[in-house]
């Protein structure tokens, strides 16, 4: 931390009204607009472009992008644009909700580990390390096969296997905050553990929690997509981008490049928008930390 502060000595970090917030970072607005655009495409798009994502038109097979079929048709002759619109819905919903639940779980576990210390900390840290050391796909696929594969199953498994990321960050921050004077002061006034956690430590963690939640969304979306690509996870017939890419690999020799390129591009835009928002959050957090130290 001290190294990063040195260059700032010459140019005092603006505070108060001029403190850089996330709202005046162009990268945040770029990510935000991309995300809103994608959410609009997936959830409002089907209302404006009411073509069926399921209807099979044998005559459309092999049709590339054209004015009547903007993104072409897939290997069964289904409207690719309609499928891409619907295909993002489950991915976004499952990715975002499971990431938020995982962040919440990780926050609680990280706070408990960092503040209670002792045996609780050791057990929780060990569990965190164990879960972090397994490739997430392994429990994901295993449980998905054991239970019935569905979006809900996927949501639970991803949430339950992703919390260590947030837990580790929050624990590290809680360990640091625990030693600060105002927490000691609160403790000496007789505040309970829960009160210290919620009123004194948690408020200073929000930036960490936000940064880790964007990272969680990115990794949750990726792991759900990878599972769906492998044929587990989000089940057909409801389309999803990863499943569409998997289907397109089956008849690559036919040369329908659009069935592989467009779902992938949509996915990359989703990841980019989340990354941009995360970068902006991290940048703001960094400046704020530098200003307060």
């Amino acid at each position: 931390m001290d190294h990063s502060v040195t260059p700032i000595m010459d140019h005092p970090v603006p505070t108060g009204w001029h403190a850089p917030t996330i709202l005046n970072q162009s990268i945040f607005w770029l990510g935000f607009l991309m995300l809103i655009g994608l959410i609009g495409l997936c959830f409002i798009g089907p209302l404006l472009y009411p073509a069926s994502p399921y209807a099979i038109h044998l005559t459309w097979i092999g049709h590339g992008p054209s004015p009547s079929l903007p993104l072409g048709a897939d290997e069964l002759g289904r409207n690719e644009l309609a499928r891409i619109m619907v295909g993002g819905q489950l991915l976004i919903v499952v990715g975002v909700t499971s990431a938020l639940v995982a962040t919440a779980m990780g926050t609680v576990i990280g706070l408990a580990a960092g503040l209670l210390g002792g045996m609780v900390d050791r057990v929780l840290t060990w569990t965190t390390d164990v879960v972090l050391s397994i490739p997430q796909l392994v429990p994901l696929l295993l449980i998905d096969v054991l239970l019935r594969p569905s979006a809900t199953t996927m949501f639970y498994i991803v949430a339950v296997t992703s919390w260590p990321l947030a837990a580790r960050l929050v624990r590290a921050e809680a360990l640091r905050t625990r030693e600060l004077e105002y927490v000691t002061a609160a403790r000496s006034l007789g505040a309970s553990d829960i009160r210290i956690a919620l009123r004194h430590v948690l408020p200073s963690q929000w930036s960490t929690i936000w940064v880790s939640s964007t990272a969680q969304v990115g990794s949750a979306v990726l792991v759900v997509a990878t599972a769906s690509f492998l044929g587990f996870g989000l089940p057909p017939p409801f389309p999803n981008w990863a499943g569409m890419i998997a289907a397109s690999t089956a008849n690559m020799s036919a040369g329908y490049w659009w069935t592989m390129v467009f779902p992938g591009l949509a996915f990359v835009l989703l990841q980019l928008s989340v990354n941009f928002i995360g970068d902006a959050l991290r940048e703001t957090l960094w400046v704020q930390t530098a200003a307060s130290s």
């Binding site: 990726l222 592989m260 992938g264 990359v268």
Partner: peptide, 15 residues
């Protein structure tokens, strides 16, 4: 690059 999923890039390369 960090936004591109491995399974898509791999499929594209094969294609």
């Amino acid at each position: 690059l960090s936004a591109i999923p491995g399974f898509w890039l791999g499929s594209l390369l094969v294609f």
